[in-house]
Design a protein around this nucleic acid. Structure first.
Lengths: 143, 143
DNA sequence: TCCTGATCATCAGTAAAACTGACGATCAGC
DNA sequence: GCTGATCGTCAGTTTTACTGATGATCAGGA
């Protein structure tokens, strides 16, 4: 079988998709008690870290559409987890900041994320897990 | 900054999503001249390899819904790239087999996929690239 | 100061993708 | 020949993201 086509399960696209799928399976049920989805938690993590960012800065960094970001922030604002504030110095921008409750949920979600990642990476040694993360990071940064 | 939240870009979910996104960016434009999408090519790769499979076997293996599989096979059949055949021995099942043209497109797509993966993995050494693939494979298999 | 072009957030409408529930045909086991 | 289960299919719904347009705001130049 010299010209046997490579198994579908060796394709990077397949591997990346299913790794993501498995991670979501592990994480999402644990997020549910917090009353938020993984997407929403990603936003909390984004806006909770570092200096306050505008919606569009966040959208670019997260790789979501600008209009999708509006909807996501709407959801979190309705739950009382974030606030929109007019950016001092540029009133077109809306800075998204976490409420105390939002900060609490973010921290709890962070811990859950850590657990879910640990479960996903369980088959790997700590060293290989770190290598995987580093390799993905380099690939995503494109150099 | 002892309690600084970890950067969003270190989360596995973020890394996996963006790696997939970058791969799609690299591959999809190259698939276009073949007249098929990446999804359709994945189907061709799936049904082109090994013994003929039923639609539902393929759906399970690829991680798509059974009804989604129907639509995907419809598309490929309309392009004349695959045929549905009643499975001998179980007339409920439809075996999906590639036409000669389908096989041609599959082979061309395989080559394009190889190129796109190579571009994505460019920042890594050949050794690290193989390690990445192996690590993902183990993670997806769950052991 | 007033104009012009650009950016930010938003919204309405649209397109794409997947899922739910139901159906007829077929099978395996009793 | 019945019964329960599986396979493929379809219609309808839901979810999700994108397209294009709008009003507010800003920066820079005449």
């Amino acid at each position: 079988m010299s010209s046997a086509p490579p198994a579908v399960t060796r394709r990077l696209g397949y591997l990346l998709k299913h790794a993501q799928l498995r991670l979501a399976e592990l994480a999402e049920p644990r997020y549910a008690p917090l009353g938020v989805t993984g997407r929403q938690l990603a936003l909390l993590a984004l806006f909770g870290a570092g200096p306050a960012q505008s919606q569009q800065d966040g959208a670019a960094r997260l790789g979501v559409d600008r209009t999708t970001m509006v909807a996501l922030v709407d959801e979190l604002e309705a739950k009382g987890l974030v606030r929109r504030e007019v950016a001092p110095g540029d009133r077109r921008k809306r800075l998204v900041t976490l409420t105390p409750e939002g900060e609490r949920v973010r921290a709890a979600g962070e811990e859950v994320t850590r657990q879910a990642e640990a479960l996903l990476l369980e088959p790997l040694s700590a060293e290989d897990a770190e290598r995987l993360r580093a390799a993905l990071h380099r690939v995503v940064r494109g150099g």
